[in-house]
Design a protein around this nucleic acid. Structure first.
Lengths: 264, 264
DNA sequence: CAGGAGAGTTGAACACGTTCAACTTCGGGG
DNA sequence: CCCCGAAGTTGAACGTGTTCAACTCTCCTG
């Protein structure tokens, strides 16, 4: 059932890809509310209400009826903009990831690869920390491979690309004075795959974090501190046959998973 | 709410641990139906019906009302024996794990550690394979750390111990002719933790399997074939400082996770 | 044999996520 | 000025997991 993907609100122009502007997330605040879609304000209102509810009630206790009521719209209206509660969670992830990107900006300027990795990952954990108590319920929505909120889903493609790009930047390091070549770009036979592999490892760390019962998730922090320099060192050693073959296996795997993700 | 854990059916003797017989899972078939608890037959009936429904409809499409109807009992009666749909899934996991244990028996007789590991893990995948298409929804129930069906939950303690024991057996290898010392028991500084670590790795492989889109999950099979000998080799190398420190980190982590699991 | 305590069982009822046919609003063409 | 179609909006209704007060049955006690 429901094999056709809808994308309800702005779905004019049947077959085309809707590249132009269509996806007007939210207008500035509440100023001009006409050209970018009259319902954009409503959409933004519902979304903000939902995110706030997620923030201080968690996933389970957040109710579609509650969101609608708090936003002052009808239940059905919330569903007009978001196909499901799960899609709301997807937006939640997107928001977190935008925050991650922002927090990580400074870390990317470090000259040392291990340091960049370490700080980028810590930045992600910083961003997620307020939600740790709800993480268990949130991850439930993201885990099923067929879920829209899955990191591998087609719906998450944009967020995924941004996240992978973040690790690409971390690998490449800061650009020198204008025109200078990057000093620390790591080479190696599987360099093109590294951003995605690091992102995958980051997902693993996130899973670890979800289960981490230590106060303030200190153990996750420690894991990051240990793993970052080790990873940086390993990257320099990908020429060694043993590591090389493991990396090749991982590469093939990631390719297949990517295939799966783009299908749905 | 509902902070008190019930364990409804056979809950006589308030404070004691209920060690004697209490947990009569199912009587033989339908013969004598008196001493082991009059409702044991009903419980078994509901459970079997539920497992069958899981098997050929998956988790989502299986309905508590559907189970009750198919079993010929009322909805509330099903809830009398199983606190929630999730607890039914937990029994499902237990059943799979029992099947795993059985399938793995032969593999444990191999004299080579890598071979034992490989075959034990393959046996587990064999057991799960019929459910791969539903695995996404099943794992959703097991992922939240607070879930009863979580591998780390107190409710899963028995199943967890059995699974860890399976890997302990795989590590120790077959006993020689009666009275002979085991030939291949691996030593090393963190030997006591190895069973649990292997079980943890097995969970990771299971997660991989859930996401594996390759036909027949061939890639998971290949991963197992690659990882098993590599793991066996690594176990012999735990004296090397680098691996040793990683192992120590993992040890502390596992200890903390175990704490978390026993709380709830 | 009467009584009763507890296991076993029932179906109504609740809150939730989701769907849907109908209604309202709005902008532009006749 | 009216009207039309699309965007936006509404609340009822469906099926779900779960809870609960009440009922029946069984067996033991007196």
């Amino acid at each position: 059932m429901a094999s056709h993907d809808s994308g309800k609100p702005h779905d004019h122009s049947d077959g085309t890809h809707n590249d132009g502007n269509g996806n007007g997330k939210h207008t500035g605040d509440a100023g001009r509310a006409l050209p970018p879609g009259r319902g954009a304000a409503t959409r933004a209102l519902v979304l903000e209400t939902a995110l706030a509810s997620f923030r201080d009630q968690g996933y389970e206790r957040t109710t579609m009826r509650g969101i609608a009521k708090a936003a002052g719209v009808s239940l059905g209206n919330a569903y007009y903009y978001f196909d499901s509660k799960e899609h709301l969670v997807q937006e939640f992830y997107a928001a977190i990831q935008a925050g991650h990107r922002q927090r990580a900006a400074e870390a990317l300027r470090s000259p040392d690869l291990a340091d960049r990795l370490r700080r980028v990952i810590h930045a992600g954990i910083d961003e997620m920390t307020p939600y740790h108590s709800f993480a268990g319920s949130f991850i439930k929505v993201a885990i099923p491979p067929t879920a829209a909120a899955s990191p591998f889903s087609r719906e998450s493609a944009a967020a995924r690309d941004t996240a992978v790009g973040l690790f690409r930047d971390a690998l490449e390091g800061p650009a020198g004075p204008s025109g200078t070549a990057r000093p620390t770009a790591p080479g190696g036979p599987l360099a093109p795959d590294l951003p995605e592999l690091l992102w995958l490892a980051y997902l693993g760390i996130t899973l670890f974090w979800v289960y981490d019962p230590s106060p303030g998730q200190a153990r996750t922090r420690q894991l990051v501190d240990s793993a970052a320099p080790l990873t940086a060192r390993s990257i320099a050693l990908t020429r060694i046959p043993l590591l090389r073959s493991v990396a090749d296996d991982l590469h093939t795997l990631v390719s297949e998973l990517r295939l799966k993700g783009s299908r749905r």
